[in-house]
Design a binder for these strands. Structure first.
Length: 230
DNA sequence: ACTTGATCATGG
DNA sequence: CCATGATCAAGT
């Protein structure tokens, strides 16, 4: 519905205007029905915000706001203000990874600039009543990027060595690999232990809650400090 | 209580 | 199948 924002400032202003509205109010403005729960429409909140803000990418493997190089992420928040879920970033490449570096990786590109929009996510709040929070435009600090890079290199080393069968969600301090697919039967091409092609379950990169919690806390604590001065 | 592994919808 | 958008729910 809404046209793509032309500048970062315009995108931020639109996101700021969303704060305080409920998902049901925004859905109504878009002529959409609000689902009773998210069991069968897990991406509904993210799609709603994309539509409202004028995201352009669709299902292309680029940032939501390609021209602005900004990725949009909604993040479900608990009553205590902490993330209720990990954050999916992108699928992990399992083949053709020879010579791939963090600097050239898809995930680094996606995380280079993210507009986080917190949304109430407790299941006892009806979806239509859940309120949208203050947006946060984030770029990884030097430390954060180093942490992500370290995890990424550990995980990608396992993939490159054909150890995909050994990978589980326990690897990686801030970035983890988890199954990504319609169900456990979906398979894709990967490398086996001796370099031979094998079939494996597709994997996705997810940010652990401890990482996103720190992003949110740092930002909103900073705001609180600034407000004390006024 | 919390995380891991599984699952759902949609479009190309 | 691959990509996007994620949350559910079993297991520990």
């Amino acid at each position: 519905m809404n046209a793509a924002p032309q500048t970062e400032q315009e995108l931020l202003e639109r996101a700021l205007e969303l704060a305080g509205f409920s998902l049901g109010e925004i859905a109504a403005k878009l002529g959409q029905q609000c689902p009773m729960d998210l069991k069968r429409e897990k991406g509904w909140v993210g799609m709603l915000l994309e539509t409202w803000l004028g995201a352009t990418a669709g299902s292309k493997p680029v940032q939501d706001f390609e021209d602005l190089a900004i990725e949009l992420k909604s993040i479900p928040i608990s009553y205590s203000g902490k993330p209720l879920e990990t954050t999916f970033v992108c699928v992990a490449p399992l083949t053709g990874i020879h010579g791939l570096s963090w600097e050239k990786s898809h995930i680094r590109q996606k995380l280079s600039k993210v507009l986080w929009i917190p949304v109430e996510g407790e299941r006892d709040i009806p979806v239509c009543d859940r309120q949208i929070g203050m947006p946060l435009l984030w770029q990884p600090s030097t430390e954060e990027e180093a942490q992500l890079k370290a995890d990424w290199e550990e995980l990608m080393d396992m993939i490159a060595l054909g150890e995909i069968a050994k990978i589980n969600a326990r690897h990686g301090e801030y970035l983890q690999l988890r199954p990504k697919g319609m169900n456990g039967k979906v398979v894709t091409e990967a490398y086996g232990a001796s370099g031979q092609p094998i079939k494996a379950q597709p994997k996705g990169f997810y940010l652990r809650k401890s990482f996103t919690e720190r992003i949110l806390r740092r930002h909103f604590l900073h705001l609180a400090e600034n407000n004390q001065d006024r």
